[in-house]
Design a protein around this nucleic acid. Structure first.
Length: 287
DNA sequence: AGCCAGGAATCAC
DNA sequence: GTGATTCATGGC
């Protein structure tokens, strides 16, 4: 690791910024020339990758306290990919194609609201709504070239939005879901920090007690914010790719997909899901 | 124009 | 308990 005037250079293996950011797990990033700019953890980060060299435009302290964990840089993805690749040829192909994926460690509250918004929406629209939410209710954290960046609003900040305010941001029928979840969290009815230490099913049950949070949204929060890697979030793409590759295009129920994933991928189901999802969506598998 | 999107609640049986 | 319908909005 080298530190040169506010930028860190590190060598990364099994890491490709494009895969990490564009595989559908996060929403607040944009491509800027040969770099990406992302907003997370109430920070704005410019980051660039050339070959195996990753350059982060931040201090050493910020890297060690935030981004090393955020990008999951201390995990051996080579080993994960090796184990998954030997399970079956379809997964092997997905892993080879999307070899640079990392499962980010994002913030529970932001993931909760983001994935409540995500239901039956396409990723570009999800990104726009999250930007609008942040611009309207979040804290100004950075300005450059006349462009302002806002942190994702805290529960307390989002409390100032009425249901109609939310509807104005085009969240549609999700407005009461977001409003209610914000109320529950802001008033401590549900403590998101407490889910960290809980077993998967117990934490999932609590998340699903929120209106508008079903099995898939809960699993996304548990995977992308809490690192519960045994989950297998099953959306339309994952359902299609599993049916196509493993059940000869036969229609399978959600419970069947979950059973299949648990038996096939075990503790690595979350990783397998992300390789399969990105691969399927990029190649329109099963559609 | 009609169908679908990183689904979930509600109703019908 | 399972299956169909409904829910906003935007992209194609």
């Amino acid at each position: 690791m080298k530190d040169t005037e506010g930028q860190i250079k590190i060598i990364v293996e099994d890491f490709l910024l494009q895969h990490v950011l564009e595989c559908g797990q996060c929403f607040r990033f944009s491509s800027e020339g040969d770099s990406y700019r992302l907003v997370a953890k109430s920070k704005v980060l410019k980051v660039r990758q050339i070959g195996k060299e990753l350059t982060l435009f931040c201090s050493v302290q910020e890297y060690q306290q935030i981004w090393m964990t955020y990008f999951d840089l201390e995990r051996d993805y080579g080993e994960i990919k090796r184990l998954l690749g030997q399970k079956d040829p379809h997964l092997k192909k997905a892993v080879e194609e999307k070899h640079g994926i990392r499962i980010l460690r994002q913030e529970p509250w932001e993931m909760l609201i983001s994935f409540i918004i995500s239901q039956t929406k396409q990723i570009p629209h999800i990104k726009k709504i999250i930007e609008d939410l942040s611009n309207c209710y979040g804290t100004l954290i950075h300005e450059s070239d006349g462009q302002a960046f806002y942190a994702f609003p805290t529960p307390q900040q989002l409390r100032s939005a009425t249901e109609d305010d939310l509807r104005a941001l085009k969240v549609g029928f999700r407005a009461p879901y977001i409003w209610n979840a914000t109320y529950q969290i802001a008033h401590g009815k549900i403590q998101l920090e407490a889910l960290e230490q809980m077993p998967y099913l117990e934490a999932k049950e609590i998340l699903m007690s929120l209106n508008g949070v079903g099995s898939k949204v809960a699993d996304c929060v548990l995977l992308f914010a809490y690192g519960k890697y045994e989950v297998f979030p099953t959306d339309v793409w994952v359902k299609r790719v599993v049916e196509h590759y493993y059940f000869k295009d036969e229609q399978i129920k959600m419970t069947g997909i979950q059973t299949f994933a648990k038996e096939s991928f075990g503790d690595l189901a979350g990783f397998a899901q992300q390789y399969l999802f990105y691969h399927a969506r990029d190649n329109k598998i099963g559609k």
